[in-house]
């Protein structure tokens, strides 16, 4: 078997409200908040990037369950905002957590589902007995052009999972995918900010892939939707996951615990990891989770995750001291000027 033996999260302290961005560009904040179902988003500090967030999330996972970092034999980092165009973040993370040098590592790319592609790669290595333990991270400090719809949601964060044969917290029982060539969102080489197809990002892109990948998983496992206690869908905004759930006839009560975007924005590769962490923070032994990521371009990965049967107090000890909710509630608001400077939007100035 393969499973999750530790998890960790990291989000920046700083936030910007939708109102503050709307004020800058003369938009109506209420329309945006209702349209996207996002209230505010995370903003990185000058000294944070996708590598520092990845290290912090990984350290929390490793520290919580006293994982011996030297036993980690693979580090996979999924991101679309790596600090270097050429030089792996995986090496920085492995060095910082003390896992180097006897391991493999790679940075993966598939828009917002790069991290779940890393989970699948790690599952393959563990199930084929090549390695015992892997560290997989989804991390992003998402870029968005000033005065673009993306600016209201593109946030920052990281989530890390330690996967191994024991699966002390949960077992990953099955994974399926659904992939096509769908040009809904892209960033060309050397371009600073991504472009997107507006409404085209919905029906033929997000919904088609998320729904089909989820259906693939249900069909291939023979599982009934009713058997799952929680559903986590990739969350580019607060609305899409609920709409996907409605199309799949899943009650929204099973989706909301894994929906954190309204409070922290779309954390891209980290989004499904953070949604999963918010669910793991409250899940009980034996409960079942269905997770489906989405990466523009486009593809979805689905996972059937089952919490390990064990006494509840034993499980609680394996969860991080601070819940993701604690971190979401600790924040400091910044104004648009500060945000633009932190996110490196003022070119030639910083």
């Amino acid at each position: 078997m393969t499973g999750i033996s530790a998890y960790g999260t990291s989000i920046p302290l700083r936030r910007i409200k939708v109102e503050e961005i709307a004020k800058q560009w003369g938009d109506n904040p209420e329309n945006i908040k209702n349209g996207l179902r996002v209230k505010e988003k995370t903003v990185r500090n000058h000294d944070e990037d996708s590598a520092t967030l990845a290290v912090e999330a990984s350290r929390e996972a490793i520290k919580t369950n006293q994982i011996n970092a030297k036993q980690i034999e693979a580090v996979y980092v999924g991101s679309e905002s790596p600090p270097y165009a050429v030089k792996p973040t995986a090496g920085i993370v492995a060095e910082a957590v003390g896992a180097t040098p006897n391991l493999t590592g790679a940075d993966l790319e598939f828009a917002c589902k790069a991290g779940t592609a890393g989970i699948q790669a790690a599952i393959g290595m563990i199930k084929s007995n090549e390695i015992d333990k892997a560290l997989v991270i989804g991390t992003d400090t998402s870029q968005s052009s000033p005065n673009n719809a993306l600016e209201y949601s593109a946030g920052c964060g990281a989530g890390a999972l330690v996967l191994d044969k024991q699966g002390e917290i949960a077992e990953i029982k099955k994974t399926t995918s659904y992939t096509t060539d769908t040009p809904d969102f892209w960033r060309k080489a050397h371009k600073e900010f991504p472009d997107h197809g507006g409404r085209f990002t919905g029906k033929p892109a997000y919904f088609k892939h998320v729904i089909n990948s989820t259906k693939n998983l249900l069909e291939q496992t023979g599982k009934d939707k009713e058997e799952f206690d929680y559903f986590i869908f990739h969350q580019p905004n607060g609305k899409f996951p609920l709409k996907a759930a409605k199309k799949l006839e899943i009650p929204k009560e099973k989706v909301e615990p894994g929906l954190v975007t309204p409070k922290i924005g779309n954390t891209y590769s980290a989004a499904t990891f953070l949604g999963l962490s918010n669910v793991l923070d409250r899940a009980k032994p034996g409960q079942e989770i269905l997770l489906t990521s989405y990466g523009s371009g486009a593809g979805s990965d689905s996972f059937w995750i089952k919490m390990k049967q064990q006494p509840e107090n034993k499980l609680e000890k394996k969860k991080p001291e601070k819940t993701l909710e604690d971190k979401i509630n600790r924040k400091k608001y910044v104004d648009y000027g500060t945000y633009a400077s932190y996110m490196n939007k003022l070119k030639e100035v910083y």
Binding site: H46, D47, E48, D49, A51, T52, V55, E56, Y84
Partner: peptide, 15 residues
Amino acid sequence: VFRKLNDKKYGVIAY
């Protein structure tokens, strides 16, 4: 915490 110490346009990032 793990943070950037120095990140200029050219050269490697110091963490």
